[in-house]
């Protein structure tokens, strides 16, 4: 279920990228895409193990508990951080573009 949701988000993100000309909306679409990706990464760890719990080391170590693959979760953390960084730069560029062209619409900025 989660997998489909993530794929749906990715597709929505791509659709947004394909259709939008507004800088802010493009950044939003990118974010949607990234969220979809992140969820996808998480689901990778869960795939076969529906009842597994998060891989957090607690005080009581129980051998019987099934832990999901911790790696994707670590990856997601990194990916989120990177995504934030990109979004930040994107937004600052958007501001610069607004300063220069007084619009957020790429079409209205004109080619060259």
């Amino acid at each position: 279920m989660l997998l489909y949701a993530s794929v749906l988000l990715i597709v929505i993100g791509l659709y947004g990228l394909l259709t939008n000309r507004n800088v802010i909306k493009i950044i939003l679409s990118l974010n949607v895409l990234e969220i979809g990706l992140n969820i996808f990464i998480i689901t990778v760890g869960f795939l076969d193990l529906e009842e597994a719990i998060a891989p957090i080391i607690t005080l009581q170590q129980r051998a019987s508990v099934i832990v999901v693959d911790p790696l994707p979760q670590a990856l997601v953390l990194t990916a989120i951080v990177i995504g934030v960084g990109t979004t930040a730069i994107g937004l600052s560029l958007a501001k610069k573009m607004y300063d220069k062209y007084h619009t957020f619409n790429l079409d209205e900025m004109g080619e060259e």
Binding site: L14, L17, R21, L106
Partner: peptide, 13 residues
């Protein structure tokens, strides 16, 4: 070679 990201996205798709 436009400055519009959707073109490249389209080609990727």
């Amino acid at each position: 070679f436009t400055s519009k990201p959707e073109v490249a996205t389209f080609f990727i798709m």
